[in-house]
Amino acid sequence: MREYAVATGVEDPAYTADSAEIPSNELIAPPTFAACFTVGRTDLFDDPELGAHTNLVHGNQSYELHQPIRVGSTLVCSPQVTDIVDRGRMELLTLQIDCADEATGEPVVTSRGTMIFFNAPEEAD
């Protein structure tokens, strides 16, 4: 969380202070921190049947925060394909990922995002 804050230019001393001064378990994640497990470290696209590849860009993204993401909590994230649009040269895949607190079952963050996959010309319909 500290690394993510620094990488996105956050200057709040809560993230840059010595962890002895501000204990990690008192930190609240930056609002877009869920990118680390809803966009970045995701194996969602690994299923070969999905036909995903690395020639892609991000079309849009939203985060709805139901409660703060805190250090030490475990989130259970349930991904769902909510839309697929085939535009020939490109295909748009929209995912919703609902992340809930494992301990309480309460919703923490809802991620919605669209990835645009560019097909090679010979692969296009």
Binding site: T8, G9, V10, E11, D12, I28, A29, P30, P31, T32, V57, H58, G59, N60, Q61, S62, Y63, E64, L65, P68
Partner: peptide, 21 residues
């Protein structure tokens, strides 16, 4: 997110954020 959070006064105040790239 960083700019909005600084204006809002903390990450817990940001209810939602969306971006169209």
């Amino acid at each position: 997110s960083r700019v909005v959070t600084a204006w809002a006064g903390g990450p817990e105040r940001v209810r939602s954020l969306s971006a169209s790239f």
